[in-house]
């Protein structure tokens, strides 16, 4: 009895929170279908009085705005995917090594890795900027990708998983004739799929959503990512045109949404596996 009531209360609470999170998103979508006058006029009209696709057609198809929106999307997605792949590959190997292999000084290395999580980005970003500047890599994909790939979060997340990974599975594989690489690739990685997905989704979102670094690391319109692009538009062509701005932001959320939908199941599995266990 009581159990069931608790469950109902929990569901209601969860729904409320979900709605709370959804409101800005829905408002964004709603606004993207309003004309400029209605968008600016305010008022809590969730359904546009004069429903219009104009914002989308204008943003995507019009020659009037001279900015490479599709290039921005491409940049963001490309940088996001490339960065994510590198992060997952490096972090998986680093975490497995630290958790399971005889790595010299690993007892010192691991805390050192983790301590970097406590350094806020605002502290490192200027040195990082100068570093890339000195290397002549500013305004390149390398500048947009590599700063993200040195991140201890994934090492930490995967380390926890690999630590809990049953030793017997590795031993069974050893007796079956597998070497360390076989074990890693054919036994450990497939079992870690949900956690790897979790890391991948987090990483992709982090890179895709980031604003500050791409803003300072790039300086030509062609190299901008979608987040910085939106900012440019907000101060440029779309200034005070909320409908178009929201249309652009709505488009920008689509890749994240797709990635999330693909990985959702694995993500939940991954969180429960590493969290509760």
């Amino acid at each position: 009895m009581g159990n069931k009531r608790n469950k109902i209360l929990l569901v209601i609470l969860a729904s409320l929170i979900a709605v709370l999170f959804l409101i800005p998103l829905l408002w964004m979508i709603s606004t993207s279908f309003k004309n400029d006058y209605e968008a600016i006029a305010g008022g809590l009209n969730w359904f546009p009085k004069n429903f219009t696709w104009d914002n989308y057609t204008y943003t995507l198809l019009s020659q009037a705005i001279d900015v490479p929106i599709f290039k921005w999307m491409f940049n963001s997605i490309f940088v996001g995917i490339a960065g994510t792949l590198i992060i997952v590959a490096i972090d998986a190997m680093a975490a497995y090594g630290l958790a399971r292999l005889d790595v010299p000084f690993k007892k010192v290395l691991f805390p050192l890795f983790i301590s970097t999580l406590m350094i806020p980005f605002v502290i490192t970003f200027l040195p990082l900027y100068m570093q890339f500047s000195n290397l002549g890599l500013l305004n390149t994909y390398a500048a947009l990708i590599f700063p993200y790939t040195a991140n201890a979060f994934g090492v930490f997340l995967l380390y926890q998983f690999f630590r809990g990974f049953p030793k017997e599975l590795e031993e069974a594989a050893r007796l079956d004739g597998a070497n360390k690489w076989d074990i890693f690739i054919r036994i450990v990685i497939p079992s870690a799929r949900p956690v790897l997905w979790t890391l991948a989704i987090f990483s992709f979102m982090q890179i895709y959503n980031d604003f500050l670094w791409p803003l300072v690391a790039t300086n030509t319109p062609e190299m901008r990512t979608i987040t910085t692009g939106i900012a440019i538009m907000q101060q440029g062509s779309f200034v005070s045109s909320y409908g178009k701005l929201m249309a652009l932001t709505t488009i920008a959320t689509i890749p994240i949404l797709i990635i999330f939908l693909i990985g959702q199941k694995q993500l939940i599995k991954g969180i429960t596996q590493t969290g509760i266990k």
């Binding site: 049953p166 017997e168 599975l169 031993e171 050893r174 007796l175 597998a178 497939p190």
Partner: peptide, 19 residues
Amino acid sequence: APKDRDIAMVFQNYALYPH
């Protein structure tokens, strides 16, 4: 090396490859 000893082992928790 274990793999060259011509032995097979059964573990307490079965150690089946889950995937």
